[in-house]
Amino acid sequence: MDITQQLINGLTQGSIYALIALGYTMVYGVLRLINFAHGDVYMLGAYGGFFAASALGVTSLIDKGGSAGILQVAAIFAIGMLACALIGIFIERFAYRPLRSSPRLTSLITAIGVSMLLEFGGQAVFTPEPRPFPALIDNRFLQVTIVGTALALMVGLQLIVTRTRVGRAMRAVSLDRAAASLMGINTDVIIAFTFALGSALAAAAGILNSIYTPTIDPLLGVMAGLKAFVAAVLGGIGNIPGAVLGGLLMGFAETAVVAAGYSSYRDAVAFGILILVLLLRPSGLLGRVAAEKV
């Protein structure tokens, strides 16, 4: 394969990582919490898409063409994203909100527990066997569609965060939760909204990735989630453009390693990058360096 194709592969993989990374970075921004369960929400998104597709009777390539096919695919995305947004709100309400004033380690362990619950709950409900995902998009423009959809979602997110009242409230909460609350912002609602937004993006990424792969299993979120987290740290956690940049870089790095013939080291790349970033520039590429207050 020539280098252009490899670059396109990297871009495709990278935009999927970027979409997941956005959820990590937003939640970290408002709560200072690494939401370990985010990768598993991505998995649930893939299953949501799968079940939506079978409910709508979409089992294979859309050969009908025209608007009906596009509408069906749009509906599948909408259902998956909505379901995951609700799951995200639910997780925040019952697992994280009661611990908001506890030590960060307590929340972290809870997050690990929630992640395990979703993974093995997923194994119990969906069975561990991989399932083939319906080919919703024609292979000829699959990669273009993935990158395009991801880009559209990122632009949409950017608009929400920078142009709307709720986005301004999100930024305020991320800057200083107590002060935001004193200014009349309902922080609970904003935090729930942030979880919903991040989870919906993860669901979209899950469906896109499943069309690309094209199989799904209940543990697919583990590695993807960890890699996307690394992407968020690489870009500077808490920073939205940073998450996109980090995701794309992760995608390119991984594709490069696979293309060079070291595909068995693929999963080590992410952690190698993570360790280097944390040692050399812990605040990430676009993150601000914050002095530690004693």
Binding site: I34, L108, L226, F271, L278
Partner: peptide, 10 residues
Amino acid sequence: GDYLAIVTLG
């Protein structure tokens, strides 16, 4: 804290 957790995991 959490960063160390991730690095050890890695």
